[in-house]
Write a protein that binds this DNA or RNA. Sequence first.
DNA 1: GCGTAAACGAGACGGTACGTCTAGTCTTTTC
DNA 2: GAAAAGACTAGACGTACCGTCTCGTTTACGC
Lengths: 204, 204, 204, 204
Amino acid sequence: MADTRTPDSTRRSERSRRAIYDAALALVVEAGYPKTTIEGIAARAGVGKQTIYRWWPSKAAVLLEAFVDLGEQAAEAVGEVGAAIPDTGDLAADLRLVVRATVDELVDPKYDLPTRALAAEGIVDAELCAQYVEKLLRPSLQLYADRLAASRERGELRADLDLDIAVELFTGPLSGRWLMRTGPLTHAYADRLVDYALHGLAPR
Amino acid sequence: MADTRTPDSTRRSERSRRAIYDAALALVVEAGYPKTTIEGIAARAGVGKQTIYRWWPSKAAVLLEAFVDLGEQAAEAVGEVGAAIPDTGDLAADLRLVVRATVDELVDPKYDLPTRALAAEGIVDAELCAQYVEKLLRPSLQLYADRLAASRERGELRADLDLDIAVELFTGPLSGRWLMRTGPLTHAYADRLVDYALHGLAPR
Amino acid sequence: MADTRTPDSTRRSERSRRAIYDAALALVVEAGYPKTTIEGIAARAGVGKQTIYRWWPSKAAVLLEAFVDLGEQAAEAVGEVGAAIPDTGDLAADLRLVVRATVDELVDPKYDLPTRALAAEGIVDAELCAQYVEKLLRPSLQLYADRLAASRERGELRADLDLDIAVELFTGPLSGRWLMRTGPLTHAYADRLVDYALHGLAPR
Amino acid sequence: MADTRTPDSTRRSERSRRAIYDAALALVVEAGYPKTTIEGIAARAGVGKQTIYRWWPSKAAVLLEAFVDLGEQAAEAVGEVGAAIPDTGDLAADLRLVVRATVDELVDPKYDLPTRALAAEGIVDAELCAQYVEKLLRPSLQLYADRLAASRERGELRADLDLDIAVELFTGPLSGRWLMRTGPLTHAYADRLVDYALHGLAPR
DNA sequence: GCGTAAACGAGACGGTACGTCTAGTCTTTTC
DNA sequence: GAAAAGACTAGACGTACCGTCTCGTTTACGC
């Protein structure tokens, strides 16, 4: 029978939590996600398996939290601000900048591998997918939405613009190309994508 | 030590191959991909495990072939033709039709589940990914490319249009929304996506 | 790579150990040794396979321990004593008694089958053979040796008698006939064997 | 359904039979009996598996025939005769000679390993055991029986001597010590064994 | 000599068990 | 009472052989 009692999180060991995060991320980068096991994480973190099972429902959940934590660490280091797409008034230029930045990130193995693993897991596991979207995807999509909304207010975009679809027009092709490796991820690609998405395929 | 001898494919049992395809697809739909095991497929197909290991390198490879075969079966049943997006002269209408059809397919569990599983596996396994793209993804993307190329010739699209990106502008958002469940997949969505992709986000 | 860590025997599950003994013995008697598998033992004992592989190196080792344990159980039940050949002063009579008892045991399937299996395995596997001899064979041979030594002291046997060979003179023919089924195992045979061994083949 | 047709032995391939014998014996000596497989024998003999299954019921049966054949080959080489224990009139001396010879043979791996394997198999498989006894054991025991019978006629042994038991008095201890490795197999041992068996344990 | 039938080499097949690995649970001991 | 340690049940993994079953290919006999 499962232990339905929820553990007392106030007594949780911060040291163990950190060690588990570190071990999980390191193993995914070193050995790949499928070869990363809960036993392996526990061993590397110097932690009992039960400590993992007590606080997380699955390997993917550990990795997700670890990765979110990594992002927060990084954000804190840079000063937390900058968490918005700059608004210089030139929408195309602003978007090129951020799409290029996204391209750079997707190419860095340190981010690529864990994100791929989480995406793969999420594709098959709806539960985890929701978490993934909420904690990782949505925040970054929101940046696009905010910037586009600002331009829409100024009349630079269709007045009735559906923001969700608008955002997807940039991120969809990009993440599709990244996930399925259907083409190179370069700054040139980023620029052209922004151009097409903003102005469409029809002749000028 | 691995058995490097390649088996003699002329002596291969067609009956077993089919049974394995059927079992694999059925199990993925019924139990989900992670709970689909090679042992399970073998048992359900009434086949020895070795017969699977002899001909396929992994569970995912089995499913990929099974799914490709399923497509071929279906194509054969309809008469093989129709493997092109119709060209009525109205590009927007033609694209709406096919994007709507894609939406319908992605919603059907019979296609949804195996495709998700393959996509998930491909995201993490580059080897398999290449196969997946080559055998499943590329052919369907090519349909878009052909139709768009036809319109480009007629001057209905930018003369210097990059077809790859153009195709992605339709399929990227669609598959992104599907994979990550970030929004509903409806005909209305399909229509609006086609509109945005064709004409861009800028005001008319 | 093999797991070289030795498990902590203080934490071993007594319940599992007993269940494995019981299952192993039962299966050997019911299905025969070759059809007794480690998987079968585990299943019948309600135990994971790893629990067997953790504590024993082979199927035969399990059976050997199970059988030794069975003997200890039996000995404990009878009160532990009697573990010596009686010494009534009449050596021939004493030996006849114990050889007859041995014959009876060798004929009982409950002992016959496991012992045969162990003997067979030991014949081919020197490692196991040593264990078998040490734990099962030697103790019972020692009883003969002790009784014969007592008679030798009293001058009833050659003064320079080689006890090992002397013991073999009784047990060798007996076990040979049993193992290879070269003749009937009866009390009459036991009596005559004792007679011949004690007095030789030469005329009186 | 099994193929009930009995194959036509007149058309049997002598070359294959020999190759199988050689392969079986070589593998048992090189790799040990348990690691000798029918597939291995077939591969080494350059023979299809079916050719083995057509003519023999089991791995042990192959080995038995191979070994019997080996003996016949050897006998033929020496000139066939000598298949009897010499009768110099000195029974003890004659027996010492032959027991010493047996000891020498049991120590030679070329004979030791296959014989052990067959004995082990026979212990557990009554069917095979009968074959083994009939073809290998009985003939060699008969030599003892004949020699002892001759002496008995001459009054050198008990008039009512039970030949079976008498033979066992020599071969039982010997084979017991050999099978279970309970002591060294030396000429000294052979001599003493003959002495004890002939004259018994009682003081002179 | 030539057709035919059986034995042959080869090896794919449906299976069983192997020994290993990991999941997730449970228990014991330590802090 | 949380945590480290690790033994436990459970069962999938990929491998090795089993014994059966085709395949073509010799081989040898009867016509």
